[in-house]
């Protein structure tokens, strides 16, 4: 459940440079793209019954990669990206564990109703990948990455339902629709500053030095710190 899937796709401009020594065959690629996935557990917890809406927020990615060939088809790639991963999700949940914390006091329990979550994270990502070039036009990539977050936001609210205190059979408290009757939460401090995972992708040359790419990132640690239990899944 502590995984992220992320896809990015768009323009790639590739320009070989450097002329000497170790770097003389290094291929440098600058890329600008758009992350179209979202932060999402691989396999939602059973408490999520229905996704009512799912919006990707402006998820730009810009970056640069360098590939050092080690044979005619294989190479090693190192990159640096600056990217934004964000989304808004509205789901109907059942028996969804949550805790509303403010100023040391908290209200926790199991929520039955609707839940809205907003996630926004800016980060630097360093992918290290093996590259396979089956042709001049196509490059397949696979390897690990690490991300360092520069800003983060995780907030949302439980609304139009009821919270059962402490246990799934505890006393009911209705949560309403308006700002002061729903259960708001906001937990940026509990989010991790560091992500790692695996990347899988393809670059395709389309015209001269321009191309397209698609990447899939699979996060291996959750976006929340390990001891964080405030919402049921580490991702939402």
């Amino acid at each position: 459940m502590k995984k992220i899937i992320f896809t990015s796709l768009l323009i790639l401009s590739s320009a070989p440079c450097w002329s000497q020594g170790f770097f003389n065959d290094v291929k440098v690629t600058a890329r600008a793209g758009y992350n179209v996935g979202g932060t999402q557990p691989v396999g939602l917890p059973a408490s999520i019954r229905k996704l009512n809406s799912y919006h990707i927020k402006s998820n730009f990615v810009i970056g640069v990669d360098a590939e050092k060939p080690i044979s005619s088809k294989w190479g090693v790639m190192l990159g640096l990206r600056f990217e934004n991963k964000g989304m808004e999700i509205d789901a109907t949940v059942k028996k969804y564990y949550m805790e509303i914390v403010k100023g040391g006091d908290s209200m926790k329990g199991y929520f039955y109703g609707d839940n809205f979550t907003r996630v926004k994270q800016w980060m630097f990502t360093v992918p290290v990948q093996a590259a396979f070039n089956p042709s001049d036009r196509v490059r397949l990539k696979f390897g690990p990455y690490v991300s360092f977050l520069t800003s983060k936001d995780f907030s949302g609210y439980a609304y139009d339902g009821y919270l059962r205190g402490n246990t799934p059979v505890g006393p009911k408290v209705d949560l309403g629709h308006e700002d002061d009757t729903r259960g708001n939460y906001d937990f940026p401090d509990d989010m991790r500053n560091f992500h790692f995972g695996l990347n899988l992708g393809a670059d395709v040359k389309v015209y001269k030095n321009l191309g397209a790419f698609a990447d899939l990132a699979w996060g291996l640690n959750g976006i929340f710190k390990k001891d964080f239990k405030t919402v049921e899944q580490t991702l939402c």
């Binding site: 896809t7 939602l44 917890p45 019954r49 036009r137 393809a202």
Partner: peptide, 29 residues
């Protein structure tokens, strides 16, 4: 939309989105 879509892009796209959006809802407990 994919600029210069070869086979891979739509496949990736379909896989990822499919995985993300639909197959995640588990049977109700």
């Amino acid at each position: 939309e994919s600029l210069g879509s070869r086979h891979l892009l739509p496949i990736f796209f379909a896989c990822c989105m499919g995985n993300l959006m639909t197959s995640c809802i588990k049977d109700e407990e």
